[in-house]
Computed example of a mutant assay.
Amino acid sequence: MGLLTETLPNLSLARPGLDRHAERRGEPDLVARLLADADTRVLVVRGDKVAVAIPGEGGSHDPALALRPPEESDSAALVLFLGQDGDGTAYLAVAEPAAPDGDADGGPTDGVDQWRSLRQIGADLSDRDATIFATALALSNWHATHTHCPRCGAATEPVQGGWLRRCPQDASEHYPRTDVAVIMSVIDDEDRILLARGAGWGTGRFSVLAGFLEPGESLAAAVAREVHEEVGLVVRDVEYLGDQPWPFPNSIMVGFTTRASSSELRLQESEIAEARWFTRDEYREILAAGQVSASTRLSIARRIIERWLGHDLDEVTPA
């Protein structure tokens, strides 16, 4: 698996952004020194949203993160060191609580910038900005849910530029967690794809199967187990396609395609509401008719389906 893969082209969040400069995380007073440098760029993460500069109608630029210089109040918040760009400019994230309900719609901040979630804007950002957003969101999510030591229960303290939490009572160190999930297209001998609707999903929302890696399990074994558990199929020829950070809240999605040994389904009703095999023409027809909804452009699920279909879902003309 190389650093970059073209197996799933244009996969959002999957390409490098900043140089993380992990060796700098242990520098004494790193965050304080960067906050004192007016050249440092700061991304404010407010809950799951950040400020984004969105061009007006007819604008010639793509949306971009609304980065700013450090402010005096930043030192009172959780500050995360994200890395540096090729010019040596350092980037920090400042994690703040979510906005009050009245401001949660992502309205304008100063008439130009608007608050957006990664799901809303990630596919439209540059590789650098999308990676900055994803990294900041994943780290802030981890800090929000790992405030106390799992050994003794004492409140832990962020150190190493936000890449570690240390317990002041027993000196134990706790690192950010990433949960690994496999996500896969299942193809039968007629070259049909299996799409399923999860329990609790709305009508018409179909996607590929996915599930979390279990302890002591290889990725290929997880693919085979999840498919068998959810739809009762035995699979073969598990092929890696690509992977994508998925900070909702702290995952990485590892994409595969696999072949089913039969087409007879046996659904796990607690997980799967319905599942269907689709030919390419059938899928195009019901997508054009609005009978199924496509996954967002941000997701690896969409790219996996497009790989099987042979073209971008945007090329399917509504009926």
Rank of each mutant, 00 (worst) to 15 (best):
T5P: 00
P9T: 01
S12H: 04
P16M: 05
D19F: 14
R20N: 04
A36T: 10
K49P: 00
S60I: 14
E72I: 15
F81M: 03
L82T: 08
Q84S: 13
A90I: 07
L92F: 13
P97A: 14
A98R: 10
D103N: 15
D103P: 06
D105K: 09
P108R: 08
A130W: 00
A136P: 04
L139K: 06
N141S: 08
W142A: 00
T145M: 06
R151C: 08
A154G: 12
S172G: 14
E173H: 06
V180W: 10
I183H: 02
L194C: 03
L195H: 02
T203W: 02
R205A: 11
F206R: 09
S207G: 15
A210T: 07
G211T: 12
L213S: 08
L213W: 09
A222V: 13
E226T: 13
E229F: 02
E230I: 02
V231G: 03
Y240K: 03
W246V: 01
P247R: 03
N250M: 04
I252S: 09
M253S: 12
T258V: 14
S261K: 15
S262Y: 06
E269F: 04
R276K: 13
F278V: 11
F278K: 04
E282L: 03
L287Y: 02
L287M: 06
A289T: 00
Q291I: 08
V292C: 02
V292Y: 03
S295Y: 05
I300Y: 01
A301W: 01
W308E: 05
H311I: 01
D314S: 10
E315S: 14
T317I: 15
T317F: 10
P318G: 07
